[in-house]
Design a protein around this nucleic acid. Structure first.
Lengths: 359, 359
DNA sequence: CACTTGGGTGAGAACGTTCTCAATCTGTGG
DNA sequence: CCACAGATTGAGAACGTTCTCACCCAAGTG
């Protein structure tokens, strides 16, 4: 019976008493600051060991003003993009002795606001935020004004005083679209995953609309898609652009819809890997083969992209690096960097496999 | 210019002064405890609003002894199993007003120990741990002894005073194996993902070995696989059991190895979905078709399992529920539950699709 | 010898809350 | 007018650290 003695954790004062020194000296010995004689240090360390002393980081934070905690806000931790990015953030944080307080915002603006409030009260030293599509700029700016540096991941919020890390969405989408065009496809569908509002904006032509749109991630990719078509002299067809939700079932439905059009697309560009799954599912259901009947290119190099038949051609983002870079940037700020705000764009890589073939 | 006034956050004392009351009264008004006159409350609330007051939860925690924080330790946040379970935990926590401090242990025992130490110092109110395979029982027990309740997720640690949540791994694996046997397969390979040590134990026959093995998740599944074979009168063949690492490439290599045997398996049971991807990749490389040439059944109903060709037959775990249940169990303990330790087993579900067919 | 130097030490303040307790105020009944 | 219950209030302790400051002492230095 090593019978769980569950006594309250001893404070530094108890340890000091046990070692026969003052709390100040005990603090110095345990904390490794100031100067302590060898004799005192050994007495204190021995006493601490004997009593099972563990410092209370809450009390320490009150004094030092640092919690050594980074808040991380993501819309959906189950999305492989965010779980991988989170890993990058967490690794960067651990490397420098920080921990991560995670909140899932579920793409819900109310939850996001609430989380910002809670994390402010917890006095996190900084915040990595992948905002919801319609992010609350004022709520975020309020955090910044409270002295908590913010780094935006993947998505941008115009006018916010914060560093951002992401890819060049517009260029990446343009490149992917161009590859499909070069393979001879003249009719390319775009699965955005966004909602109706986005769809309205997309179908309303004119540079103005496209520019405004390019502020969001999905919008920027849609703009790149459009860029490629226009440059290649292909008339964009609004009915080929789908924005009917970002679940797999939504993508399957959207796929069935565009393929039922009078002049159906011969290629599809899906803006994330979950949407691509929906496309594959729909194709199977329709008895169509990829790439023989329909070519497919998707964003994000998912685990399964290489293993399935046919292996999927993708636009790969350096997801882990995006997270790690966001973490590093944030910690630089936390540790006092006063540089101008940077907007870091990491390079993407097109991985050609077998899901897109020439027509 | 709304020029970021970055003044330090005001304390309750400043608010009290501004409102013309004592800190005690201000505290009552803001914290909603004790009794305060309408007039005082309104004055305090107005002052707080004006000054942008945000309570400091560190100070609060020092007094109340509650951080309203749950520590979560997972081996790999990128693994869909854990990211989904994490979501369950986080949702359960939020529901009751708790936050989640996340640490990735990377299957590294040293990191796990370090994390336990850090989270203890941070005075988390409780801990959900998915331990590494060779978990350090003493380190975990030390946490429990420090008065921090622990709930184990997915994996068990013999002798630890903690609740556990998981599935009946042995029964689930036995069921999956039986289904393959019923389809007429006499030669079924098992991809465990574990390492050499596990393989040694598995190849050493005898009830004793199997029983000891059943303590870990992988071990229990291996035992279930063996149970099914033995009951069906099929002689287990050690060379059909692979334990060569849990990365996709490892699984692919293992698949090639077993298929090159003189009497190759006609069916494969993969103990997680990443391993299944490796199998599919290897089959493609060998020009073999699934299920015509080789049947495949895997643990975990991954996103892509239904969308690929052929759709994968799987043993589905209620992953989200496992996490949520762990969170709830832990919060019950945090809030003073004194019940005996429970070991909750949630039911699994076999989803029959098209990757396993009769021989 | 007087005077500096600097390691070592302890008392007590500080951080920002909540809690305890006694004092004051208010209104009511006798 | 007095006694009394109950609401309201403020002073100050408490939580467990780190930090500031003044002090002591031994070892040089002139």
């Amino acid at each position: 019976m090593s019978g769980s003695v569950r006594r309250a954790m001893p404070s530094i004062e108890i340890v000091a008493k046990e070692a026969g020194v003052s709390t100040a000296t005990a603090g110095r010995a345990l904390g490794g600051y100031g100067s302590v004689s060898r004799k005192s240090r050994e007495a204190v360390l021995a006493a601490a060991e004997r009593l099972g002393y563990r410092p209370n980081s809450l009390a320490r934070s009150m004094i030092t003003g640092l919690t050594h905690t980074l808040g991380v806000l993501v819309p959906d931790i189950e999305n492989p993009f965010f779980s991988r990015a989170l890993r990058g953030i967490a690794d960067a944080a651990h490397e420098r002795g920080w921990e991560v307080l995670l909140v899932n915002t579920d793409e819900d603006l109310t939850l996001e606001r609430k989380a910002l409030s809670v994390l402010t009260e917890r006095r996190v030293d900084g915040l990595v935020v992948a905002p919801t599509d319609v992010a609350d700029r004022d709520a975020l700016q309020a955090v910044v004004d409270a002295g908590i540096p913010v780094v935006l991941l993947d998505r941008r919020v115009p006018g916010l005083e914060a560093d951002t890390v992401g890819i060049d969405n517009r260029a990446a989408a343009k490149d992917a679209t161009e590859r499909l065009l070069k393979l001879g496809h003249r009719s390319v569908a775009l699965l955005t995953g966004g909602d109706e509002k986005l769809r309205d904006k997309l179908s309303r032509p004119g540079l103005r609309g496209v520019e405004r749109l390019a502020a969001t991630t999905v919008g920027a990719r849609a703009a790149g898609y459009r860029d490629a078509l226009v440059e290649a002299g292909v008339e964009p067809r609004p009915e080929l652009v789908s924005a009917e939700g970002f679940r797999r079932a939504d993508a399957a439905a959207a796929t069935r819809r565009v393929l039922a059009l009078p002049d159906p697309p011969t290629a599809i560009l899906a803006l994330d890997s979950l949407l691509a799954l929906g496309v594959l599912q729909a194709l199977r259901g329709l008895g169509l083969r990829c790439p023989a009947d329909v070519s497919l290119v998707a964003f994000d190099d998912a685990d399964w992209a290489e293993a399935i038949s046919p292996p999927l051609s993708v636009v790969a983002q350096p997801i882990y690096e995006l997270g790690a870079e966001a973490g590093r940037l944030l910690l630089d700020r936390v540790q006092g960097s006063d540089k101008r705000f940077t907007h870091r764009r990491l390079p993407t890589r097109f991985i050609e496999r077998e899901s897109a073939s020439s027509r």
